[in-house]
């Protein structure tokens, strides 16, 4: 296994004027690791995620990513072309609202196939076969391949979004409240599916969630955020079973027992 991290984040900060989005965040992420960022609304976790995923320019600090050629590159020094290429090949981004991550007016098959076509696949039959395979892996029936996501339930849309992101075998996936808008039973199925995919594919993932049960099931490590700062980090079960920071104790004690 590689001993080099995939992502190196150093003193990352984002300010909105005088307000703090997130401040002085430093961590490393290794291949195959799932990191959960937890905290309540407004704690800065989504700001941090967007700064990491190059969707929002940070005010200070650096984010370095190990490219497939093993070279570390500062994400904010990449050209826009390189950055966008990275985002649709080596990365995935799963939005809370699937409509933000899908093309709602093209078929499920084309939604999954788009990334393949973007990297130059020009064989319809192969693209369709790959799309079919991926729909199966996210438990969408093969005969729905030509339906538009508009005709899908919330859970199916979310699974389609995941397939769309994973089809190029990314090494790093960002997820913003991936189970956010789903009812509990649908959530459980999706979480279980994600857990399986992440471990089977050896994906590294950064999952933003306010739901500690999601963090427990999906992640190896956790960062707890409050008011833009990291207040506690560690192994997920350690943070949840023996929380140290006052805020983490409050967070853990205020959830229903699972």
């Amino acid at each position: 296994m590689s001993d080099l991290p995939l992502l190196k984040v150093n003193a990352l900060s984002k300010f909105y004027g005088s307000r703090i989005g997130c401040q002085n965040v430093t961590f490393e992420l290794w291949p195959g690791e799932v990191l959960a960022i937890v905290g309540e609304s407004g704690s800065g976790k989504t700001t941090l995620l967007n700064c990491l995923a190059t969707r929002l320019a940070p005010s200070a600090g650096s984010v370095e990513y190990r490219m497939r050629d093993s070279q570390f590159r500062d994400l904010y020094r990449l050209s826009e072309a390189e950055r966008r290429f990275l985002m649709r090949t080596d990365w995935g981004f799963v939005h809370q609202n699937p409509a933000d991550g899908l093309r709602m007016t093209v078929s499920a098959g084309a939604n999954v196939g788009e990334r393949l076509m973007a990297v130059g696949d020009r064989h319809y039959g192969k693209i369709r076969a790959t799309a079919t395979d991926w729909l199966g892996r996210v438990e969408i029936a093969e005969d729905r391949i030509d339906d538009q996501p508009r005709a899908f339930s919330g859970g199916m849309r979310q699974r389609l979004q995941i397939a769309r992101n994973l089809v190029t075998n990314p090494r790093l996936v960002f997820m913003d409240e991936p189970t956010g808008g789903l009812d509990v039973s649908v959530q459980a199925r999706l979480l279980d599916l994600l857990r399986g995919l992440v471990s089977d594919l050896g994906l590294a993932a950064i999952v933003v969630t306010h739901d500690l049960a999601v963090a427990r099931l999906l992640s190896h490590r956790m960062m707890v955020m409050k008011d833009g700062h990291i207040v506690e980090t560690g192994l997920t079960d350690r943070v949840l079973d023996d929380p140290q920071a006052p805020y983490t104790q409050l967070l853990v004690s205020s959830i229903l027992q699972v």
């Binding site: 560690g234 192994l235 079960d237 350690r238 079973d241 023996d242 140290q244």
Partner: peptide
Amino acid sequence: LKMVYGNYA
């Protein structure tokens, strides 16, 4: 036991 396993600080 939990400290040895890293589950408790």
